[in-house]
């Protein structure tokens, strides 16, 4: 008795469950008119400080909220609560990234219709979050000046999963001899045409430009809905 292999065509995306959940979330966000921004970066790049300032400043005129992912502790949610915006922690345990289902679960008690902006801070990691769509409108990748200029070259995949780059802690640029031109060039090498903001959440430098951009995108997405 012999055997011979036979191929059966399947063609299925391995992350289809996540993609389906993300698609449903995106539809929910669209219907509620909320603009969703996710943040990815390595640990210690200043995501939480950046988000705290962003929430505090936007909150003056917009309804904002945030979800924050971490392996353990609720420290970030406690820090972000200082902005007085609604904040919920997603503790992932050992998982190195957020998945769409975790976002869906975390949002169950919230009325999205009451929000203009929702921020999702991913787990600090420049590798794994790149594979998972969270249904967001915009993904920001943060790199701080203390990390060096070559982060984009080392993590081209995350830069290609993000829409906009932010160089943070620019107030420390001089002290760490950060080369802005080189960093900008590296972003453009792995993601031609990518918009890059440079700012310091601590000193406030560059924050206005970044916030104006978010407001513009919120209004554009709502205007597109009306048409």
């Amino acid at each position: 008795m012999g055997s011979q292999p036979r191929l059966i065509e399947v063609r299925k995306n391995v992350l289809k469950q996540n993609d389906l959940t993300a698609r449903a979330l995106r539809e929910q966000f669209r219907a509620a008119g909320v603009f969703v921004v996710s943040l990815v970066s390595s640990p210690g790049s200043g995501k939480t400080m950046f988000l705290e300032k962003t929430l505090t400043l936007l909150r003056q005129h917009y309804r904002v909220a945030a979800l924050v992912g971490d392996l353990a502790t609720e420290n970030d949610a406690i820090r972000l609560a200082r902005s007085r915006a609604p904040v919920k922690q997603i503790t992932t345990g050992t998982l190195c990234h957020l998945e769409a289902a975790m976002v869906e679960n975390a949002l169950q008690e919230w009325d999205l219709n009451q929000l203009d902006f929702l921020f999702i801070e991913n787990v600090g990691n420049l590798v794994c979050p790149s594979s998972y769509d969270l249904g967001e409108n915009l993904r920001l990748v943060l790199i701080s000046v203390t990390e060096g200029e070559d982060k984009p070259l080392k993590y081209p995949t995350i830069f290609n999963s993000a829409d906009v780059a932010v160089v943070s802690k620019i107030d420390l640029a001089k002290a760490v001899e950060f080369d802005w031109t080189a960093a900008y060039g590296n972003v453009q090498a792995v993601r031609p045409g990518m918009l890059v903001f440079k700012l310091s959440a601590k000193s406030g430098e560059g924050m206005e430009e970044h916030l104006d951009f978010l407001k513009k995108r919120l209004h554009e997405s709502r205007a597109a809905e009306v048409i």
Partner: peptide, 26 residues
Amino acid sequence: PSGEIVQGKELEVVALEIEEWDRSPV
């Protein structure tokens, strides 16, 4: 320079291989 990616993000099961036993007498 181009950021218009047309291939490279795939993570897809494309086919399954199965053993088909030949039941005909040898």
